[in-house]
Design a protein around this nucleic acid. Sequence first.
DNA 1: CATGAATGAGGGTTCATTCAT
DNA 2: TATGAATGAACCCTCATTCAT
Lengths: 187, 187, 187, 187
Amino acid sequence: MRAARDVFAERGYHAASIRDIAREAGLSLSALYYYYSGKQALLVALLEDTLADYQNSCEVALAAAGDDPAARLNAFVRATVEYRVRRQVDSLLALRETRNLEPDQLEGFVQRRDALPGLLQEIIEDGVACGLFATPYPDEAQRTVLAMCNAIAQWYQPSGDLTVTDLVDRYVHLSLTLVEYRLPGDR
Amino acid sequence: MRAARDVFAERGYHAASIRDIAREAGLSLSALYYYYSGKQALLVALLEDTLADYQNSCEVALAAAGDDPAARLNAFVRATVEYRVRRQVDSLLALRETRNLEPDQLEGFVQRRDALPGLLQEIIEDGVACGLFATPYPDEAQRTVLAMCNAIAQWYQPSGDLTVTDLVDRYVHLSLTLVEYRLPGDR
Amino acid sequence: MRAARDVFAERGYHAASIRDIAREAGLSLSALYYYYSGKQALLVALLEDTLADYQNSCEVALAAAGDDPAARLNAFVRATVEYRVRRQVDSLLALRETRNLEPDQLEGFVQRRDALPGLLQEIIEDGVACGLFATPYPDEAQRTVLAMCNAIAQWYQPSGDLTVTDLVDRYVHLSLTLVEYRLPGDR
Amino acid sequence: MRAARDVFAERGYHAASIRDIAREAGLSLSALYYYYSGKQALLVALLEDTLADYQNSCEVALAAAGDDPAARLNAFVRATVEYRVRRQVDSLLALRETRNLEPDQLEGFVQRRDALPGLLQEIIEDGVACGLFATPYPDEAQRTVLAMCNAIAQWYQPSGDLTVTDLVDRYVHLSLTLVEYRLPGDR
DNA sequence: CATGAATGAGGGTTCATTCAT
DNA sequence: TATGAATGAACCCTCATTCAT
């Protein structure tokens, strides 16, 4: 799977050859087929693993965050940003190669994947409902939060100046700004 | 080119077969080769055309916007959002398939493409410098503005309830919020 | 035809594309087809022209040589060597590309082409018969004379030190040596 | 390789299709690619094998011939003639298709191939130096010896009257005649 | 658990040729 | 005379996959 991840990431699913993956993995072609039933199965395994990990990270973070919408938004953004950095390559694959899942797999996968935006949606709507978030456009705010977090995988360089801690702080700040967070009693 | 756009968009560059494109275009395989020297040439033509159109839209909009950073940000976001809607499929291709340009083409293309984020960068820094934008994170704000505008191509449905006009308004609002725009005299 | 000669010579008949020939000739593809009915026709024209020229050269030389076998051998070798130098590229084509003639053309062409070795054969046999040539192997001598003359086209460099005059002298000498020419009265 | 040899010989490298070779070999197209990485690789394999065999034959023959130039010339001609008969088809390929080697391969191949004429050159020059060979034109004599031996592959018919033994005798005779061999003490 | 061998389908591309203009 | 446009067949090659061992 490591080999598949690297090769898929470098070339893209369709341009990647299963021979390249086998070579990268130090396996013979047939040995690879012994463990995975085919190219598609490798992709599925990668994406499922990535998604499960991400979902779990979010759940844990949200469970610890309690009920406050601001705290929950904070937790969600933190979990997402950290995930995009921690599993940067997998994040890219999830964004780019999901479309190459075959119809069977695709449906269920997308369904599960899209539960998370729904969660974020709820958080923001809660915040709006109780007056913490003043944004007039909760839908677009939610889309933007996701888009900006996802994009991290495309540009972040672990070797650069920006530490993950700082990155998280900044994205949390941006998110709260986006939803126009008003401190309670600040109205 | 229309056929190439549709087929590339539907399947992705590598999964798309030049035979499919020819069929979609109502041409024989060889006739297609008469006009374009190959698959890569089709991709290049598409991406170059898309980029030129987008750059032009931005330039026109910014030229009309004058010097005020807020007005310029407004113009930039408006131009980008409208572009993402007007040429939605091309926008997706530009985002997804640029990586499939061959090294020769890639370099120059990316260079030209990345001039625009630079422009946005300047706008935001100007705004910060003259106190109009209060964001402590101009870099991340700029990345977010781009990310959210780009993402439009992935979800917007012209047939839906949201008109382009409304969409633009909302994204302008979000952008100004992101950079923490303070009305002059509002400090 | 000049273009065809050059392109056929450089790449070989099958590797040469009729587009290359047209480009080399400064013609459009269709204009080329206006003058020659196809690739094969170009080859036929080239080879026929070359053969006719060579045959003519030989006939003229032999007519001037009179009856003496040594003089005739001298004339034949001189004509052949000079021809290989004068039309070096055509000579190469004749040697290499005759096999690519289509069956129709091939038969007649080969028949005419092989009349000349027959002539050489007669010359040598005459010389042997009247005791001028002492070679015990007239057939092999004839084959060798032809082979050595033909090979000239493969290595001779007009820009080199060896002049055509010298070249002819040497090959005449070699030929007479080969047939073991005995000066009359030398026996 | 046998199939490749036959098909290349019959049609020429460029006119030969790799499908024909596969069919002739009783393999599927892909199976052929399993063993040889492509058309060029087949050609290289054939030519290299042929060259190595020929070089080896010459070396063995010369090693057994001792120092006498006449004996060495005899050995060289014998080895070459026998080789041209023994591997007639390969000889034709080597003569005709070497030009279709790609530049990488071509250089080294030609270099190795041309070592042999150099050897012949030395033999003849030795003979001339010690007065055994009286030819005034050692270079041309050498070219002729090679040309006549090489040509054998183009016309010899094993089914004909001429046995290989006779053939060798005659070509040795012609070669010695060409270099104007004088028996020691015959000067 | 691992492999070498084999396959058929399809890939992008080139080509000689034709035809309406 | 000359051309641009078009075609269908064939080309070399790569691929995901299978199977006997």
